[in-house]
Design a protein around this nucleic acid. Structure first.
Lengths: 203, 203
DNA sequence: TAGTTACCTATCCATAAGGATAGGTTTTTC
DNA sequence: GAAAAACCTATCCTTATGGATAGGTAACTA
């Protein structure tokens, strides 16, 4: 079995390769950037599986994933990430990823997951992902559904008017939710609210 | 030699331990949280070196580092991190850290760095510290010193008035800088500017 | 059934923010 | 020494934001 691991952290790459090869008997090539990964896929493939770090030069959110998936005769691709908003995981799967591997996964489990995904299965350990399930998050606990939707708009740098349009609400209503969620999360303006939400990995 | 590695990413912990032990002949204990690390330091020490992940449950920025450093007869402590704002690196060193190890470091270099730090030296990779002025960053390249200072204020959720007070400028001047930096970084309001700056790890 | 919660619309008001100009000094650069 | 860039203050204007209130509906819940 031959796989490709692309991650800009040399530390993880070096140690991971040693581990997967010795403990798993799997051949591994590596790349530190998306571009180099794509070159390897083109020249040294086919790979049974490609693991892309979600935070890596060239990835640009999920654009990098799509670029690899769009390759003619492209390989199965999974993302690997330290932390990611739940929405991103969902979007990656929808885009056709073979899985989403959290870096909190034990090394031994990763070897199993690699075999699993290379066999054509989809690997998504929801329980291991960041506590991004809105209902589970301390900050999100106190927010209503609407307030969360509004907060998501804030976290994207949108104006009240834009949020109102997106949610098909009136602007005064949005302003109300904004004001209420400020109190709940301890923000005094929309920038602070956005930063707090981002900090909490809510979105 | 006995060291402690604390990182919440099982994947890195598992593979790193295997690597450091076999390739470096160094004894390693590990912990997934700061609290467990401190327990180990208390019960299983003394350690020649403690490596703390900057992003790990319980760390709370640099507070975790300080907690360990403040221990009576505390060990030498270094931080390890995937990415960190320059200011954080500087602050960690000032607080008494034995070093700051980027995860982009090759595994072999880490083994050397561990020995180096355990011997009492301070390890801070030049490429991590040299561009201490924001001049190295593509986004920062186009911003003047003042605009950067103003952007930092924005990134902390401050109002123009607060920024003006902090920088001892008049509010109209701050507004000018704000407007100009929007153009340069492609933001249309302060929240977007803050998120872009945060995204670029500028602060 | 009555109370609670979430959700919606609306108005009023003070302040902040964003954009456009105009004109000034200092420092850097050619 | 002239030109350019950075930096500063200011005014005018429009819109956005944040806060306070008031009142309404639907759903669920003790």
């Amino acid at each position: 079995m031959l796989i490709l691991i692309a991650d800009d952290h040399d530390l993880l790459r070096d140690t991971l390769v040693a581990y997967v090869q010795t403990a798993g008997g799997i051949d591994v090539l590596t790349a530190p950037t998306l571009d180099q990964a794509m070159t390897l896929i083109h020249n040294d493939g086919p790979f049974d599986l490609v693991l892309l770090d979600y935070n890596m030069p060239g990835m640009n959110r999920l654009e990098g994933l799509r670029r690899v998936l769009d390759l003619p005769d492209g390989p199965r691709v999974a993302l690997i990430s330290g932390e990611a908003p739940r929405a991103v995981v969902q979007e990656a799967i929808d885009a056709g990823a073979a899985g989403f591997v959290p870096k909190t996964l034990p090394a031994k489990s990763l070897v199993n997951a690699i075999r699993f995904m290379a066999a054509g299965e989809q690997f998504v350990p929801l329980d291991l992902l960041v506590p991004t399930e809105h209902s589970a998050h301390p900050m999100a606990k106190r927010l209503t559904k609407r307030e969360l939707q509004v907060l998501e708009g804030l976290t994207n740098g949108k104006s009240n008017k834009e949020i109102a349009r997106d949610l098909e609400l009136s602007e005064p209503t949005v302003k109300l939710h904004v004001k209420n969620l400020y109190r709940k999360i301890g923000a005094s303006n929309r920038t602070q609210a956005a930063l707090l939400a981002r900090e909490a990995k809510l979105f």
